[in-house]
């Protein structure tokens, strides 16, 4: 390749996250060199401090939006990116840090930091798609290595990624795993969870814990009684739905409804009406400035 470098440019961006999804890209050891032949990695601070200029053909975004500065930064990234893909539960659903959406972030801040006045943060942790338009969302905590490569490969070929929206039960049955809830009464989130891992946990006798978030077609009101049948208390169900994808709308709606039902009577008169509390209606979290 002499003269002009015609490779598409790729950037990897970090927001609020543990960086695990970016590490998944670095973990593609065998494919990294062939990948570097196909794309020019222009911006990837996790891998190199040399940041190339935009615009970028493909932007991979890791992490959720939790600060006013990040809310600005993602708009700029959108502006300089042709195709924007979110990678992982933080970027796609707000991550585990979206637990703050169900609580008082000022209280957290005061408890954790010696000088909380120096910490500028938003009341909610939000998915990238609630801030800017997103071209493709890759799920998982962390993302699956094979799926990440498939998204990049498909982008290079100009085709749709071979990534399904269906439940974990599909790959679970395909690989011949015996259904845990049916045969052992083990609670499993598989029927409402997005495929992507290939039904890894059930294959090792462990119920799915939903790290890929809700599938494209869920029925949580019909599903929650199954978790209860298999021994989970109402609080257990709230907790299992409030992990890495706590703010995913389907999980948030179900956990909020249950949390409301489980709330002790002295917590307020709201129980009698069954009305959800503010910010707990399961809808996509509003973008609230913490000090408003």
């Amino acid at each position: 390749m002499s003269g002009v470098d015609r490779r598409p440019t790729m950037a990897v961006w970090k927001f609020a996250s543990c960086d695990g999804c970016q590490l998944t890209l670095l973990d593609c050891e065998d494919e990294l060199l062939p990948l570097a032949d196909q794309v020019r990695i222009s911006y990837f601070l996790e891998a190199t401090s040399a940041a190339g200029p935009g615009p970028y053909d493909l932007s991979l975004v890791d992490g959720s939006i939790t600060t006013p500065a990040d809310a600005e930064r993602i708009r700029h990234i959108r502006d300089v990116s042709r195709y924007l893909v979110t990678i992982g539960a933080c970027a796609t659903a707000g991550g585990i840090q979206a637990l703050r959406n169900f609580a008082d972030v000022a209280e957290f801040r005061a408890a954790v930091y010696a000088s909380p006045e120096y910490v500028e943060t938003l009341a909610d942790s939000t998915a990238i798609s609630l801030n800017v338009p997103v071209d493709f969302e890759l799920r998982g905590c962390p993302v699956d290595r094979g799926q990440l490569l498939e998204v990049i490969t498909a982008h290079l070929a100009g085709r749709r990624p071979d990534i399904s929206d269906h439940s974990v039960c599909f790959p679970c049955k395909r690989r011949g795993t015996v259904c845990l809830p049916v045969a052992k009464g083990v609670p499993c989130l598989g029927p409402v969870t997005h495929d992507g891992c290939g039904a890894l946990c059930p294959a090792y006798g462990r119920g799915c814990y939903g790290c890929f978030g809700p599938s494209g077609s869920t029925n949580l009101p019909a599903f929650v009684p199954l978790l209860r049948r298999d021994g989970m208390s109402g609080l257990d169900v709230v907790r299992v739905l409030r992990t890495f994808n706590t703010a995913a709308p389907e999980f948030a709606a179900a956990s909020s409804a249950l949390a409301e039902a489980e709330r002790p009577p002295e917590a307020g008169q709201r129980d009698a009406t069954g009305e959800p509390g503010p910010g707990q209606d399961g809808a996509a979290p509003r973008h609230r400035w913490e000090d408003e």
Binding site: H166, S167, C169, F170, K173, R174, C179, G190, P191, V192, S217, T218, N219, P221, A222, F223
Partner: peptide
Amino acid sequence: ARCLTCGNCTM
């Protein structure tokens, strides 16, 4: 209202 559309029956 009861169906999870999880696909187990067909598989």
